[in-house]
Amino acid sequence: MDVFMKGLSKAKEGVVAAAEKTKQGVAEAAGKTKEGVLYVGSKTKEGVVHGVATVAEKTKEQVTNVGGAVVTGVTAVAQKTVEGAGSIAAATGFVKKDQLGKNEEGAPQEGILEDMPVDPDNEAYEMPSEEGYQDYEPEA
């Protein structure tokens, strides 16, 4: 019985440690998101679009440190934060509304985080759909 109880105690310690790591990862992701939003706020009209992409990228980098179902929630929060940063930029006159959601080359930025393969159960990952990809044929 002692062996059984000791095993359960060790398992509990492992769960607590994993929860603490997840909590730490979420806190880091939130900190990076805040950094990115402050970065966007300090940019001029020309830099705002690039700044919004930076927020998304920093958040995406930190999301990889967070495991399990938390990833889905962090990704949703990050996307809403990026959308909010863009709205703030438009409201303050840093950028025109028609410039939001495009990178410096004018290509749409939507789907940055949505296409990231995420499995809350950590069982399997699927690649994003290939609808947006084109076949590449090298020139002879």
Rank of each mutant, 00 (worst) to 15 (best):
E13Q: 12
D2R: 07
Q62N: 12
A53E: 06
T75C: 09
V49H: 05
E137G: 05
M116Q: 03
G14R: 08
A91Y: 11
I88S: 03
K12N: 00
G106T: 11
F4Y: 12
K21D: 00
V66A: 06
V77D: 01
V118K: 10
S87D: 09
T54S: 01
Y39W: 10
G68N: 01
K12L: 15
V3T: 15
G51I: 15
D135N: 07
G73L: 14
Q134N: 04
V15E: 00
H50A: 13
G41K: 02
G14V: 14
N122T: 08
A85E: 01
M116R: 15
D98V: 02
E35Q: 14
V95H: 02
A69T: 02
S9I: 11
V63C: 10
V63F: 05
K34F: 07
A17G: 04
K58H: 08
L100K: 09
I88M: 09
Q79R: 05
V55R: 01
G47T: 10
K34I: 13
A53P: 02
Q24K: 15
G73F: 10
T54M: 03
G25C: 07
L8S: 00
G25A: 05
K43C: 09
A89H: 05
P117E: 04
G67I: 11
T64W: 14
G132V: 08
K58M: 08
V3K: 09
V16N: 02
A11Y: 10
S42D: 02
A91D: 04
V66P: 02
E114F: 05
E57N: 08
G51N: 05
E126L: 13
K23L: 13
K32I: 09
V15K: 00
E13K: 02
V40H: 05
V26W: 09
V37D: 00
Y133R: 12
Q79Y: 08
P128E: 12
T33S: 04
A124C: 06
G51V: 14
A124S: 10
Q134C: 11
V55W: 13
T64S: 10
E61G: 08
G73C: 03
E137P: 03
V82F: 03
M116V: 00
A69Q: 08
N122P: 05
V48L: 08
V52E: 00
E105W: 00
K23V: 12
V48R: 00
V26H: 00
M127K: 07
G132L: 12
V48D: 00
K45A: 12
A17S: 06
A56Y: 09
Q99Y: 15
A107P: 12
N65R: 09
H50L: 11
Q99P: 06
E35Y: 01
E126R: 08
K12A: 14
Q79A: 12
N122V: 09
M5S: 05
G84H: 10
A56V: 14
Y39F: 12
H50W: 14
Q62G: 10
D98A: 13
E104P: 09
Q99D: 07
V40Y: 05
E137A: 13
G25Q: 08
A140E: 04
A107I: 03
P120Y: 04
I88T: 02
D98H: 14
S129I: 09
K97M: 14
D115K: 05
G36I: 15
A17R: 07
E139Y: 09
P120F: 10
S87H: 10
F94K: 05
N103E: 10
E13A: 13
K34D: 00
E57A: 08
V48E: 00
V74T: 05
V37T: 03
T81H: 03
L113I: 04
A56S: 05
E131P: 11
P138W: 06
V49Y: 05
K80Q: 08
A89M: 10
F94W: 10
A85R: 04
L8A: 01
G31H: 15
G101A: 04
K32T: 03
K102G: 05
E28V: 11
A27C: 08
V95L: 13
E131Q: 08
T64G: 08
K58W: 15
A56E: 01
S129M: 06
A124R: 05
A17E: 03
I88K: 02
G101R: 06
E83S: 06
G67F: 14
G73K: 07
T64P: 08
V70Y: 11
M1N: 15
T81F: 14
A140N: 13
K32P: 00
F4G: 00
A27L: 08
D121G: 10
L8P: 00
K21F: 08
G73H: 10
K45M: 14
G51P: 01
G36C: 11
A53N: 02
G73T: 08
V55T: 02
M1L: 15
K21L: 11
K43D: 00
A78Y: 12
V77S: 04
E46C: 06
A19S: 03
E83C: 06
A53F: 03
L8H: 00
V66E: 01
G25V: 10
E105F: 06
Q79C: 09
Q134W: 14
K60D: 01
V49W: 11
E28N: 06
T59P: 01
E28Y: 12
A19N: 00
K6F: 15
D135R: 03
A140F: 13
S42A: 13
Q79M: 03
L100E: 09
E110H: 01
G84T: 08
A140D: 04
T64D: 06
V63E: 01
V74I: 01
L38Y: 09
S87A: 10
G84R: 09
K34A: 08
A30C: 11
E57D: 09
L38R: 03
E61H: 10
G41P: 00
A17I: 13
G47E: 03
G14A: 04
E83D: 05
K97F: 07
Q62P: 03
K45N: 02
K96M: 06
K102H: 03
G14Y: 15
E61W: 08
L38Q: 05
E110S: 12
K43L: 10
V49G: 05
E126C: 05
Y133W: 07
Q24R: 07
G41W: 14
K80V: 11
A11E: 00
T72P: 02
T22R: 01
K96H: 15
E61V: 11
G14C: 11
V66T: 01
A107Y: 09
E46Q: 15
T59E: 00
A78M: 06
K58L: 14
K43H: 05
G106M: 09
V49M: 03
E131G: 14
S87E: 12
G86L: 07
A56G: 01
S42V: 05
T72W: 09
N65P: 04
K45V: 14
E28G: 02
A69H: 09
K58G: 14
Q62L: 13
P128D: 02
M127P: 07
G31V: 01
E28R: 12
S129V: 05
V70H: 01
L113E: 10
V66S: 01
A29C: 06
V55D: 00
M127A: 12
G31R: 13
I112R: 07
V63S: 02
A69R: 08
P128H: 08
K97L: 05
K21Q: 06
D119R: 15
A30W: 15
K45R: 11
G51E: 01
Y39T: 04
T72S: 11
A78F: 10
Y133V: 05
E13N: 04
T22M: 04
M127T: 11
V71F: 10
D115Q: 07
V55H: 01
S9R: 05
T92Y: 15
D121A: 09
T44I: 10
E61Y: 02
G93H: 06
K21T: 03
A85S: 06
I112C: 01
V52Q: 00
K45C: 10
A30E: 00
L100A: 03
P138M: 10
E114G: 08
V37G: 01
G14Q: 11
D119F: 00
M5R: 03
P128C: 07
V48M: 12
E123K: 07
G106A: 08
G7H: 15
V118H: 08
E126F: 14
A107T: 09
D98S: 05
V48Q: 00
M127H: 07
T64R: 06
A27R: 08
T81I: 15
V70L: 06
T72K: 15
A56I: 07
Q79T: 13
G47N: 08
A76E: 09
E114D: 03
E131S: 12
S129H: 07
V16S: 05
T44N: 01
K32Y: 15
N103Y: 13
L8Q: 00
